[in-house]
Design a protein around this nucleic acid. Sequence first.
DNA 1: CTAGGGTTAG
Length: 546
Amino acid sequence: MVPKTRLELSKLLQLSGILRSSTPCPLRCISRRPLCSAAESSGFHDTRSWLDFDADPNGPENADSGDEFVIPSLADWVQSYPLLDHTKALHKPKSGKEEISDVDRMCQILKTHRRSLEDVVRALNGCGASPSKSLLEQVLRRFSNDWVPAFGTFSWAKSQTGYVHSPEVCDLMVDILGKSKKFHLMWELAEEMSGMEGYVSFVTMSKIIRRLAKAKKFEDAIEAFKGMNRFGVSKDIKSLNVLMDAMVKGDSVESAEEAFSAFKDEVGLSSESFNILIHGFCKCRKLDDARRVMEEMEKHGLRPDSVSYTCFVDAHCREKDFRSAESILKEMTQKGCPPNVVTYTIYMHALGKAKQINEALGVYEKMKSRGCVPDTSFYNSLIYILSKAGRSKDAQEIFEDMEAEGVDRDVLTYNTMIAAACERSQELVALKLLKKMEEESCQPDLKTYAPLLKMCTRKKRMRVLHFLLSHMLRNNVSIDLGTYELLVRGLCKSGKLDKACSFLEEMVSKGWTPRETICKLLIEKLDAAGMVKEKEHAEKLMSTVK
DNA sequence: CTAGGGTTAG
């Protein structure tokens, strides 16, 4: 009996018995009482965690060496799962009446016809699918790290009668081309869009500017800004701030300041622009420049605000200079712009990272006593530092509390919890969180899966690994270079050399170039294992991409 | 994604 496509994860967990754990540990509600004294209270170092799974005497630690699951029913279930050989097509047409969606069918085609744009278009022309906005959005998201199939699909759809791309799909395509540094194609598309009323928007231009700045093409980013009017988008203070912010994020606050000087008379002044520069200078530890900008800000009659000061708090925290950070906090209160939730998050997170967990929790108490309300990001930080401090039980309680406090959990909340569970090799805890994400319609991203995949390679859970890869595909999360490297490295270390080889093959076929260290590792391992043929094959493969 | 915060590797 093969489970239906949508419910795999919940089935997996049901069968594993994890959902039957109906007697949770009594929760000490962390947010309703002081935490500083909590460190010594009982239960923290109890390795039996909050799920029955870890209390299982046949826990994962005992099954470290094999490819088997701890819980038989789980193993049975995964065995019955239509396993995906990642080197083959995703959904092989099965006998019977299984419906295969257009998206899946197209992705299957795209996996084998990816050599050139013409190849993609030709293959899609023969597949009989008809394009729609949601189809395009899904395919583009799945191949957002893979511009040939993405752009090929985009071009194919454009040529189909009765279909016209929406502005949103065009923006998505612009962004993918920019991410892949295909700037020539990106501009061509932008030109094409400008011929259609309402297609090039502020969003489009922002994406273009951000991608150029990220690739350190600052001159081109400025040209894009200058040319905005031609595309029918107004060149105003908001867009100048986008340009400056993009440059700061591309590690050139100097370019941002130049742009500011060049265009400020044209678009006017705002405290946002000054704060972007203060932020930029603080990030690269040029505090004197940051102070200079702050003075200029005041000269122009704009008062530094919480954002301005928070940049300085962040700078001191990065240096682990907590006394200076503290004195900025005091100054903020004196100047009438008291620290807010962002300021506290930065300060608490830095203390926690510096292993000063009690001081960090003190910040939490202080913030609450001042009536500042924690938000999602704040709780995410708190969960992160508690986990890093080995207080997973407290982290779990905060996670639970968020709901009660009416604060939404986001993808980072889950990513943090999942990463922590994976670090402790709590496989089912991690999978349960993934399922909860699904239930709450929280869309996973690459960073959700990375720790899970890494854990699978470490624990040699090949079936779970394949399960996760298909889960990623279904959630339109496309594998990037880093993830492939993680897989190859992890599998090498666990001696799963054949699998490591096939992932190498796959990444090369997708146009990624594995780093030298990864190649060396794999070759060495193959050599040591006496896998001569495979070694030669891998060497040949690598020589083709260098 | 539209000023400041949170995920990080062997």
